[in-house]
Design a protein around this nucleic acid. Sequence first.
DNA 1: CCGTATTTGTCCGTATGTATG
DNA 2: ACATACATACGGACAAATACG
Lengths: 251, 251
Amino acid sequence: MLTIFNLLPSITPMPSASTTKRPTDASLAIEVLREHSLATLAQQELERRIISGEIPAGSKLNEVDVATALGVSRGPVREAFSALAQAGLVRVEKNRGVFVRQVSVEEANEFYEVRAALEGLIGQLAARRISIDEVEALRAVVRRMHQTHKSRKADDYFALNVEFHDLLARAARNNALLAQYRGIVNQLDLYRRATLMHGTENIPVSTQEHEAIIDAVAARDEQRAQTLLVEHVLVSRARLHAALGTPAPKA
Amino acid sequence: MLTIFNLLPSITPMPSASTTKRPTDASLAIEVLREHSLATLAQQELERRIISGEIPAGSKLNEVDVATALGVSRGPVREAFSALAQAGLVRVEKNRGVFVRQVSVEEANEFYEVRAALEGLIGQLAARRISIDEVEALRAVVRRMHQTHKSRKADDYFALNVEFHDLLARAARNNALLAQYRGIVNQLDLYRRATLMHGTENIPVSTQEHEAIIDAVAARDEQRAQTLLVEHVLVSRARLHAALGTPAPKA
DNA sequence: CCGTATTTGTCCGTATGTATG
DNA sequence: ACATACATACGGACAAATACG
């Protein structure tokens, strides 16, 4: 338990090479607080901890514990809880408390259906609007995936996979779509974390799919990009079910 | 300005014919408060007033004014604001206040793109999972649309149109999809309300499209239902732009 | 440009409801 | 079943920032 500095956003610490003006933690905190309220900072920090699995699914979030852990009072925490509930990351039971959302297999399948549709639109729009630089950034991510595969670090691959799809989602140039997509992915992560199935997918096959997606997008083939991405999502869902031994729904 | 009774959910007032046990407003309030917090009630009430246009887009929501109007303190109101901000219905500016979200033409086009994709999935899944009763309910709505058309009440048609699509969305049997769909529709309504373009669409053409959609869904033709619904959304977007004189995006 | 009034941001106390022995 | 301990729900007070004259 500490102070406001706990919920400072994860600003990259910087290699500290710059001699210009090294901002102290205190000045950074002041700068951050000029724009963000404690409620939004608490929301972001809780979201990060939930998505990362630092706070496991099903956990009860005690108001005073969270407040003291974040170094704020209970007011901002309650506001953060409301926002997180709307985002689907926590569930609020009146007079009982708030709990980190648990996503069942059935709900995960629902999310996958929606995600497939959104990814399809992302592919379609990205093929129409992506820039050359963004295509190159996508290829760079896939290159790093190959290296990561060789060193066998599944967690790194998982992070790169997230980066790939988020990059693509941003390339679609549609903020509403981006927001909806991220919301779905966050909720799906709740399920993946709970089932400990992060990054253990079939990496070589997946990277092949990624490369095909990049090619389709770079070729401005909207239809193909859409189809490939829908398939990509449904296939990864099938892989997940296969690994878990759960029944995969048809179509 | 009044009391807690302001934010009682819109329970149908009942023709007051029942002699059994007529619950007083007070007992109703107690019953409601047993399940819902003042924050969620405030959220629902504010959402209703925003969607209905009762509170116009761009309005500044003063905390104490809203609190007194709803008969509660500022705490629950602030929690409701957090949730509404997450839902995209209001925008929060730190140390300035919260404002009802204004949706620009460009943002509305983004929403239409997403909505088209979601409606497509709705059509696909509804064709797979809809029940006979639900098909009949859809036909009933369209019948009422015809009558409404004859009496030329555009607002009624608008309400029926919402009911039709929400019914279809529920028939898709996917709660995540339903939630996302409703979120998009709510935000699109912000735009429609602002442009005063509710219900002035081409009604006869629209009802023909609705009937075709029902036929496709009833015939379990997933592909056709999906295509028809995507087209339906894009066409209604084009109609809107034509009426407003704004440039309609390609595709 | 400064002082005042209003509004937001935060914190804490109290009442009510829930879980536990 | 009762009493105790605890957590949440709500309200109100204080501080900081903004808006206005």
